[in-house]
Nucleic acid binder design. Sequence first.
DNA 1: TAGTCCCGCCATGAT
DNA 2: ATCATGGCGGGACTA
Length: 393
Amino acid sequence: MSDLPPEKPNMELSSSCSMPGSSSSSLHHSYSRKQKSLGLLCTNFLALYNRHGIETIGLDDASSKLGVERRRIYDIVNVLESVGVLTRRAKNQYTWKGFSAIPAALKELQEEGAKDTFHRFYTNENVKGSDDEDDEEESSSQPLSSSQTDTSKPASSPLPDSSKIDNRREKSLGLLTQNFIKLFICSQATIISLDEAAKLLLGDAHNTSIMRTKVRRLYDIANVLSSMNLIEKTHTLDSRKPAFKWLGYNGEPTFTLSSDLMMQAESKKRVFGTDLSNVSVKRSKTHDSATERSLKMKQHAIAESSYNRIFDALGSRGYEFGPFAPATGTYPTAPLEDNSKRAFDVQNLVSDYRPSYQNQVLKDLFGHYMDAWKSWYTEVTQKNPLPDTSQHH
DNA sequence: TAGTCCCGCCATGAT
DNA sequence: ATCATGGCGGGACTA
């Protein structure tokens, strides 16, 4: 008893229509999906915990501070953990590792994917109209030990259970995230559409249903990975289909609480005299220049292993290979703007359970933001003379 | 219309 | 049994 306090969601949508114009429910605030996106939530999550002093994170704490159901926190935490940013410490508790842990995690994934000639999709399954072969194991740190790769089941036995757990783990968001990332760092692919990724990760499971689900999951993953700036949304060069480009770890980006969250705090209590409305440290991002550094781990030519084979099999239509090292900012294509990034609609949204903490936390954060921003700006400015293009007066 | 992907039911694992 | 996790997919939103 700690949940479901505020409201009992009946079925149906509660916040009826969004149709502007007619009707006269409320003044504004059309329900916007964006402000509830996993990506935005992740950004807020990081803004909240990505700073010195944070050592452990409680799921309840995160849940209440961010004003979302626990379920969503699990989603975020799972993918963050798969990249090393977090580690599960105990029930309800995670240890913050920070972005500095990403490089090592990526390297491990890279090696992991390189070796281990994925004997993936030994194809076919049997029984059950649904197939779905996904091997790959691994998780933390172990010198390879293919663990218990079941697959020794034929014969007679409805499969006891030994592999039942693996089955679950197999479909976990965390593992999916790692495999998704491996697709990029263990091959020359630079741009991959979620559709292709799903196909690749699945063993060619034409099953539409499974595909759909997998893709949904990939969207979730892509959103949080995007908010960390590890990937970025674009389109495949050829077909204009939406896809994601691997950016790699380029240093830790700056995170800012979504304005609506800030607004909540502000409206509740103007702690700060001046208006912080125009702080918008946002917009920075590491847009273009990010490319080059990403090939950091690209020098491993080992990739030609099984992955490439898979890519071949599917035909190289969708992806964007980058066999040549993009010397310096060699962008294969136009930046594609899309800067829309996350949206910060500042409207409304006052509901929320436990408004308590907010103020306090946010207050803290602001100090942090300013610092973070300043040091970031300084760093960037020094590292790169910043010829011009600085839209700051 | 084709993409996105939020929402929360409910199976499953931990206690 | 209760509580913690987290698959999963219907179908509402968006572009």
